[in-house]
Design a protein around this nucleic acid. Structure first.
Lengths: 187, 187
DNA sequence: GTATCCATGTAACCAGTTACATGATTGC
DNA sequence: GCAATCATGTAACTGGTTACATGGATAC
């Protein structure tokens, strides 16, 4: 069997929070799950249709004047059951792949300045990630504070923070280290 | 164009270190790149053959008595050039996905004990990862110490260490936090 | 008048996974 | 006698990406 399709569970998960269109789901992933999960339209729409056929979700088509037609999906009892079964299963082994680390590993003949540039880009993006976490944190303390899942979302957020900080520290250390090496080479 | 095939660069990279068979490459990935990159045979072999056709690698078939035939590949000048071009390019944006975090995010109706189990499994695997890092560290200080790329490998290893430690801390904190919650619920 | 947002999809492609197939040698 | 290692591959599948296609409404 091929790797189980996790997209369906991600979509079902979002639908437990509230009924959504494909467009809403995409927005939710981009705005709230960005640092955990990502999806794109061309995967969301077919999976939603497939799940409708399987009876995991139900569709209602909304017509509003002056707006495009909107297909709003809700999770069914069957869908909830399937999601629950999956949530209980242990985590499948995951093969980590990092283009950045792979490149550095084989960069013996690449100018140090080029490697440093890559590290600085990574540093930037992880700093931005931390700011993004701040925003989510604030949301957890305001509009989302009364949802029963808040404590879990806080835990998930905390993972992102720990790892972003670790990466930032590593970037800074490594940039420093490579810069010192570059200095020595010049002498 | 679909996401560029990074497997070829990983294979080319390994071949810059020494000529290898597909089997050797797989072993190298498992033993040395485990925390950066992974490959499996059914991808390695076709990609090697493809790269041979493109003139990026050359093949020599070794016949040794009492052993299976071994196809040893070496990187060509053209292959080195292609690898180099890729190494110089900036890192492509990467969409992070974590099954563990996704599950936790949607585990509002799942028993806390189940979530804690998953965290303990993650904690274990990251502790093992740290031990594995120790081994590589020792290799860097002994048999690999005279290779010119050692300083880069050290940097890569350091990433793994920083992130494993961050994850371990997060797991411990979160387990603690959930256990306290579970206690409160019992009261 | 231009960019962004809302909204839904199809077509084509391909990277990577799982399962299958084979067989000799070495170490416990 | 059994498991692990050495060694190479094919077949089938599918998840996910990119590119393409459309078009009205709203904000600047």
């Amino acid at each position: 069997m091929a790797k189980t399709n996790k997209t369906r569970y991600a979509l079902l998960g979002v639908l437990t929070l509230r009924p959504c269109s494909g467009y809403d789901i995409k927005k939710f992933c981009d705005n709230h799950l960005n640092y955990i999960w990502s999806e794109n339209y061309s995967h969301i729409y077919p999976v939603l249709r497939q799940m409708e056929l399987e009876g995991l979700v139900t569709k209602i088509t909304e017509h509003t004047e002056g707006r495009p037609v909107k297909n709003v999906y809700s999770i069914s009892e069957k869908g909830k059951a399937e999601l629950n079964d999956w949530l209980l299963l242990p985590i499948e082994p995951y093969s980590f792949r990092s283009e950045l680390l792979l490149k550095i590993f084989f960069s013996g003949d690449i100018p140090l300045t080029n490697i440093i540039e890559k590290l600085e880009a990574k540093l930037d993006s992880d700093k931005q990630m931390l700011e993004y976490h701040e925003k989510i944190e604030q949301m957890l303390n305001t509009e989302l504070r009364d949802r029963k899942e808040t404590y879990l979302w806080r835990a998930v957020l905390s993972y992102g923070r720990h790892n972003a900080r670790a990466t930032i520290t590593w970037c800074e250390e490594t940039i420093q280290y490579l810069k010192e090496l570059a200095e020595q080479e010049k002498l």
